[in-house]
């Protein structure tokens, strides 16, 4: 992030008014066309000369991509072009939905800043693919899937594994993500999000977690995901499995943290060493899980 430019490289801007039209453009131009949503990532990458594009396809003119809908039992649908602030407002007006998706709400209020959130989108945040984004963690614990549409069909792609690196995803160049679903959390679940930033705007460790029925081993569900600490969003599945065991919750938290710290491959950079990140994962995860279990979060 050290390019000296004020200006953007040349490209053609297109703003299709319908999904069909957009898909037509992508089909025709393939890799040469890049989708622009809130534009935060695209404009930044273009300015840094980390991205080249013949065509910038602005999908904000496609009406059906703006959407927030909660369908009980199924989940929360958030359109690709719905801004983070629109989501926050929706959740603040619907306290019941907000409590179901507390981790998503909290991550949203920590995502970028209050002004950028008028443009930033949840889908865009996830697909940017940088290590320290805020939306992927909650997406993983709510088993989120993205609806990808192309001229040849449509599919639901799990968010877990969709990103392969900065600006690299499993999506095809001719596919457009129209919406994301955060699935209905297990009955009785509470969730939360911790962003731990250390002298950068981004978290060096971000934890999203969900806990249901902590003291009832038969029904207990725990989900944990990280960004910031790892190169890609990381869902701690092995650790989650442990919570099926009949031991007390507190003891399992300890085991889970150990499993996570033993298995995870963490980043090392000038902002935090790998050791410190691992250590923090333990502290922050323990705090979050215990507080969620106690209803103190």
């Amino acid at each position: 992030m050290s390019a000296p430019y004020f200006t953007l490289p040349e490209f053609k801007y297109v703003k299709p008014g319908s999904l069909e039209e957009a898909l037509e453009i992508l089909d025709e131009h393939g890799e040469e066309a890049k989708i622009m949503n809130g534009g935060i990532g695209v404009v930044a990458f273009l300015k840094e000369r980390l991205m080249e594009a013949e065509y910038i396809v602005d999908i904000k003119g496609i009406p059906e991509l703006k959407k927030i809908e909660y369908i009980p039992g199924k989940g929360l649908y958030v359109g690709a072009t719905t801004t983070v602030n629109e989501l926050i407002e929706f959740l603040e007006k619907s306290p019941e939905v907000r409590e179901k998706y507390r981790a998503l709400y909290e991550a949203s209020t920590h995502l970028a800043d209050a002004i950028l959130r008028n443009r930033a989108t949840i889908v865009g945040d996830i697909l940017e693919g940088l290590p320290y984004m805020d939306a992927p963690g909650p997406a993983l614990i709510f088993e989120a899937e993205m609806h990808a549409v192309s001229k040849s069909g449509e599919r639901w792609v799990p968010v877990d594994g969709i990103v392969m690196g900065p600006m690299m995803t499993q999506l095809q160049p001719n596919e457009i993500v129209t919406e994301i679903i955060f699935k209905e959390p297990p009955e009785g679940a509470r969730s939360g999000y911790v962003k731990f930033a250390s002298r950068t705007e981004y978290g060096i460790v971000n934890v999203a977690a969900l806990v249901a029925h902590p003291n009832d081993p038969g029904k207990r569900v725990v989900k944990i995901a990280y960004t910031g600490a790892t190169a890609l969003p990381y869902r701690a599945r092995e650790a989650e499995e442990l919570f099926k065991k009949p031991e007390p919750f507190g003891k399992l938290v300890e085991e889970a943290v150990k499993v996570i710290q033993d298995n995870v491959e963490v980043l090392e950079d000038p902002y935090a060493s790998a050791d410190f990140r691992k250590y923090l994962m333990g502290i922050l995860t323990t705090q979050l899980l215990v507080k969620l279990a106690r209803g103190e979060w």
Partner: peptide
């Protein structure tokens, strides 16, 4: 006291010449 530091890469260039990483 708490945040600011210019970080240098291996070739002595400033690695965080922006307000995201020079907080």
């Amino acid at each position: 006291a708490l945040y600011e530091e210019l970080i240098f890469d291996d070739s002595g260039g400033v690695a965080n010449p922006n307000f995201s990483f020079y907080y």
